[in-house]
Structures are given as C-alpha cells and as structure tokens.
Design a protein around this nucleic acid. Sequence first.
DNA 1: TTTTGAAGTCTCTCC
DNA 2: GACTTCAAAA
Length: 695
Amino acid sequence: MTDTRLYIPKPRTVEGGTRDLSTDLNPEQLRAAIHPGGPLLVIAGAGTGKTRTLVYRVAHLIDTGTPPERILVLTFTRRAAGEMLSRAERLVGSATARVHGGTFHSSGHRLLRQFGPSAGLPKDFSILDQGDAEDLMQLSRGALGFGSKEKRFPKKETLHHIYSRHVNTEIPVDDLLHAEYPQFLDWQQEIGRLFADYTSRKQERNLLDYDDLLLYWLLMLESSESLASQIRALYDHVLVDEYQDTNILQSRILQAMCSGHRNLTVVGDDAQGIYSFRGANFRNILDFPRQFPGVTLVTLERNYRSTQPILDTTNTLISRAEQRFTKNLWTERTGGEMPWLVTARDESQQTRFIVDRILALHEEGTPLKEMAVLFRAGYMSADLEIELVNRKIPFEKWGGLKFLEASHVKDVLAFLRVIENPRDEVSWYRIFMMMPGIGDVTARQIMANMQERGWDPDAFTHYAPPPRARDAHAKLSGMLRALRRRRAGETTAQEKGIAEEIGIIRDLYDGLLKERYDRPDARLADLDQLRTIAAGYPSRSAFLAALALEPPQNTQDLSGGGDSEDDCLVLSTAHSAKGKEWDAVFLIWCVDGWFPSARCIDDEAQLEEERRLMYVAMTRARNHLYCTYPLNVYSSRRSSDYSMDQLSRFLDRGVREKMQRVTMGEDPVAAPAPAVDPMLPAIDLRAMMKKRFGG
DNA sequence: TTTTGAAGTCTCTCC
DNA sequence: GACTTCAAAA
C-alpha cells in the first residue's frame, strides 16, 4: 500500500522479556484486556490506564493467536495512533508493526485505494484537505454566481462547515440551517444547489475531501454485499480509542465492519468529548449498548496519573456536567500540592510567572519535556513564545498553524498535484492566480478550456492566452513540459523523483515567491524542508496523500538550540494535549470569554463541551497544576458588551476551594527580564508567592 | 481585466 | 494583528 510506512513505528528495543497481565494490570483493566470477543465497552476516566489497557489487549490478542495484521486499531488523532502502536511494540515486539492502525481517515484512505476501483472509484484520486475543500466550494460558488448577490451569502468556510456537518452527522441541511445559521435560511435552495455542484465537481475532478474518505468507506460496506464481506473479512478484531469523539458516520462504519464477528472494543470517556465541532457526538458512547446488544461493560476509575489534590479539583470541575456514566476517579497518590490559581496583572506578568516557574521546576530537576503549557487556541501563546525565545528555553508547539497550511507550501504542492491529477481544479486555479497577468476571469477561462479538452495534460500548453498573460503562459507551460518530460523518461531512480520535481518547480516559483511575499527567506527555507521531507517518500502520490492525512507536526523549531533538541517544553492547544500527560501543567488564559471561548457562551451544549475541554486540560497534570489568568486583557474585543476580564466561569467557588490562590504583586523588576540560560539558577518566585491574598 | 491599496471582518479546536 | 473583500486606478 502506498502509505504503509506511516504505520510502522520507529524501531525500539523490546523491554523485558516477560509480562504478567495479572500483575501489570488491575482487575478491571485485566478484564478488558482478556475479554474473549464480542462487543466490549470500556469507560475509562482520565489517567486510568486506558491506553495501557488497549495495548495489553492488543498484545493478548496476538499472544492468543490472532495474526497482527488481522487487528485494526482506530484512533482519533495521529499522535494517539503512533503512541499506541509504539507502546504495543515494546510489549510484544516487532509483530506489532503488522497491526493495522491509524486514524479513521487514514484507514478509510487505505481501504479506498485498495477496494475503491472495484466500487467504481478511480484509482488515482487526490485528497483535498480542509483548505482545498473550501477553495473548491468557492469555485462552485463563483460558477453558480452566488458570490455577487446583495444579501450576504455564506462564506466558503461556513459553507464547507455546514456541508461537513451534514455528512458527518446525517442531519438534513435544512435542519442545520434552522438550528445554527438562521440568518442564511433565505438561501436554502441556493445552498442545496451549491452542495450538489460541489459534489459533482469533486467527482468530475477526481477529488475526495476528508469526509468522503469516511463516506465512501461506508458506501463500500453498504452498497455491495460481496465487496462488504471482502472488507469485513480483513479483520478479526477492531479496537477504537476515544470513542466519545466519533460521529454517527463512524459509528455506522464500525457497525458495518463488525456485523459478522462482533469483535469490537471501544474505549472512551464521556467526560472528555471535545470534538462536536467535527460532528462528534459523545452520545455515541452512551448509545453503544443499544447498538451492540450483549455488550460487556468495564469501568476504569482508578487514576494512576494525578495526585489526590489535583483529582479533587478536576472531579469538582466535571461534577458540574451532566453525565450518564458516572465515574468517581480515585488514586492512591495522596499528598502533593493543591493546584494553583494564579492571578496576574496582565499578559506579560502571566508570561513571566510561567517562565520563572518553569525555570524553577527545571532547577529542581524536572526535565523541560515533563512540562507543558496549555491554552484554548493556538494564537494565545504568542507572547509566551517570544519570551521563551528570548530566554533561550527550547520548546515545541503542538496544534495551531501547520506547516502545509502556509500559503507558499500550498503553492508548491499545487504544481505537484496537477502533475499527479491533471483534473485537480483547485490546484490549477491556485497556480493560475499566482501568475502575473492572470486573474480570476482568465483562470476560469483556462479551466473551462481544459475541461473541454477532457483535462488532457497538454491542454494548458495548447491554450491561446490573452496578450497580457502570454509571458506567464510560456513560462508555465515550459515548466510543465519539463516536469512531464522528466516523468516520462523516469522509470528508475524513483527515490530522487519528487525532490527533483520540487527543484524544477522552484526554478520558476522562487521568483514568484519573492515578488509576492514580504520575508521570502523564511519561506524559502520552508521549501527546502519540504524537499527534504519529499525525498523520504517512494512516490509522488504517497507523498501527497501522507501530507493530507499525516502532516508534519511542527517544522519551524523556534527553540534556540536547533532542531535536535530532545528535552524541550511543550506548548499545546488543549485539544492536541488529549491523551498526553506531564509532571507539571500550566493552563493559561483562564479568562471568561477565552476559556470558555466567547462564541460558545450562548449555547448550553457548546458551553458544556468547553467545560469538558478544560477538564481534559487540567487532568493532564501528574504533580503540579497551575491555572493562570490575567486581570487586564488588552483586546479590541473588550469593546463588545461582554466583559472579558473575569475568571473563567468553570473555576467557580467549589472548584476554587480545592485550589490555592496566588495574586502576583506589582512587578518588582521594572527592567525587562535578562536573557537566562535554562541551566543557570532561576529567579526565586517563592518570595513573590508569599504575597498571596485570599485563598 | 488585473492589480493594488484601503477598509472591513473575525478570529479555535482536527482529520 | 492577519486575512479577506471591496473599490478605484492602470
């Protein structure tokens, strides 16, 4: 398969030769791990050894004779997939590499490449990431002439969101409009036509968006019994992590995958459902027993991660939420300090507190990689990042803007994609729009022309451009010819293929880039990086698919120490932090309107999700938890009628009683903090903390 | 018709 | 403070 390399964990030594399930696991975990077959639902609170249980279950299945390649492990994020498989590998050794695992989307992709052709799907489809899908929506919108109406028509992002919600939740578009976008009800008909156009456009252009990877997977299972039984026969056991974050579509896929053997294990925590914006419905986990009669239910309540004071706080926080599967997490890790609630004067004082505290903990022996700073949204760490760079503290950031969302990277990929799929309208449009002398109208003309020629790869070369675009046309067709010539002549030496193609593209593109963007140097460096990544892939299609499904986490290493740093602090969105744990966790911006986000406060369900998100963030901590909030928030949003500088409503009186309060005093040092080497003794904060009020 | 500059919008989370 | 959209100039 094109993308199998993605599922092979890094080689590691096998730890210890022996393992004894009955001593390694507690009785509930053991029950889940050795469950013989049939539907199994594991309700696992935060830090209760959920992954451990799944890992041991995989090991047990292999030990008892299930061939590894007949086990499918589905997770929600790429990070979770990688972690699970590498831990399983340490337990059972290299056989684990043959376990099929990954996200729902990557597994769907793999099956579609394999079985799609027999279901009428072209073999060489390209995958649209979210941005591409939105751009295609925009093309549809323009083609149907909905862009230039007097009354506001939804933007491409909104349109795509509605469409995606519809596919993932199976809620009719009209109902979605009524419930969430009443202002667009006037456009009901137009939106319906637009979605129809978008759908047929995808089919004609050989494009699949993320939702299609799930949708076509399900269609393969539901439309043809012979095909379905072939696919079902691939696996004897299916295991699903983070089941509370699955949506209706995914749950139907699981039902169809397991309708024969019914060997389905799902693990989840209804208190940690945080992906409803993607159509996830944590009710899925509550409905599981009804969908799979005869289910075995195991509940894990013993927490191995956090100290009792931290659990006291987080249990109180989540007790406000309505839950059906009630869990009361407990631990034997008594002792330890209460979580801190730190009031700072403003953002810079918050930043200074975090940095000083991190240095102090580091001084006491906590490695940087055992600490994390969490926040609601990627941009909230900007000030902190600057300070970390100043103080030369290495860090890596999870979530937030990704490498391939950068426009210059997408530009280069567009060239590769039209070589791969000459019908890729989104990429053609992108390419045309970056050429001087070609604008929206000319671009659409060219594409119409190409469509008439049946998307013949030479169609562009034969197009007769208007005078002002002649120069651009000549350059571009020269480059496309060079790329194709190289491709035709190349039957060997595939390894260098894509990197070489990127080289040809950059001969033309680097000049364009310098014209179009302000600081070209950093962007050119990104392109070097892209080329390096590309060189590691066996084929162009594998490279493009992997980029869409498993994009590199973070490429710009902002740390002072270079990219070989292995002890570095983690900055992460609360979403990306799920499933991880650290010795010390800092949750910043605990300000009402930031966390919870202001846009959620009118909707009860969304507000509850924000609460669960904060619960997820706080339960990442093993020993130290700091929640900080600045009193003065300088933001244009303050002009709205909503007060932004209150403590988060989730940290109510009951929760605060379980925390110790610190109010930072006036800044004792007026001058900016000096650059500090992390190895040097840190500023002692204790004196400052003694000034605490309240508590 | 394209480009450029200025006003305006809206802020996220992830595959 | 970044990105999009809109309006006027080339």
